[in-house]
Design a protein around this nucleic acid. Structure first.
Lengths: 113, 113
DNA sequence: TCGATATACCTTGACAGGCGATGTATGTAT
DNA sequence: ATACATACATCGCCTGTCAAGGTATATCGA
């Protein structure tokens, strides 16, 4: 994973919420989607993924239900709640602010790197 | 601190290195500088700051020396090393990549938030 | 002179998120 | 048969952050 995970830390839940905002989904698919969107440069570790799902559900930001596949491995689907959509909006705003702030804080005075 | 510290996490060392790239400095001043550049929205906790200095020095990215003030509290100054400058360049590159990646991963498909 | 405030350093213990490792089970392709 | 992909889940460790506490010097106002 060529992208330092430390830099993504703190965004895991936002990434998941953004995915679920578009459509209901399940763990494996969420992670495949991240992998594809990132051009194979990033994916969540399973322990990270399921830990985030647990926290999000405990916070009432997502709800889960078992899929009704009659073949293949069972899937636990997740659906974003209104609280989740609201949290997503806040997180996106915070990310915009944080991005600007970090850009300011890592500026070096005029020198060329 | 209206900016979520979780989003800055992972950038602490880069922020410090960027400051030291411009000039030698000491802990208190580094933090004041962050406070001012952020318009009062952010500052490092002291435990975080000094912890980062320790890690950076152990990694050979900075060097420290006592200031020669003959008045006021003593200051431990830090100087960035060549290894530190090199690490800074890498971190800035990674930040550029991470920024783009996160922006991609938190996109929602067409819907307006 | 006493207390508050600013400057300046540092450490300890706890916490939270992420991760490596491991385990379970079903289905498909060779 | 065996490997691989799909799909879920947990345990224990590691690391960066933070709250809280501690030390010391200098200044300013009451």
């Amino acid at each position: 994973m060529p992208i330092a995970a430390d830099l993504i830390r703190g965004h895991t839940e936002t990434i998941i919420l953004a995915h679920l905002y578009s459509r209901d989904s399940y763990g494996y698919e969420v992670n495949k989607s991240i992998y594809e969107k990132s051009g194979g440069r990033y994916e969540l570790k399973e322990a990270t993924l399921y830990g985030a799902f647990r926290r999000l559900e405990e916070a009432g930001r997502i709800e889960s239900f078992w899929g009704d596949e009659n073949t293949g491995a069972r899937r636990r689907y997740y659906r974003i709640t209104e609280r989740g959509r609201s949290a997503l909006r806040e997180n996106l705003d915070e990310w915009g602010d944080a991005k600007k702030l970090i850009d300011i804080l890592i500026q070096t005075e005029g020198e060329r790197l």
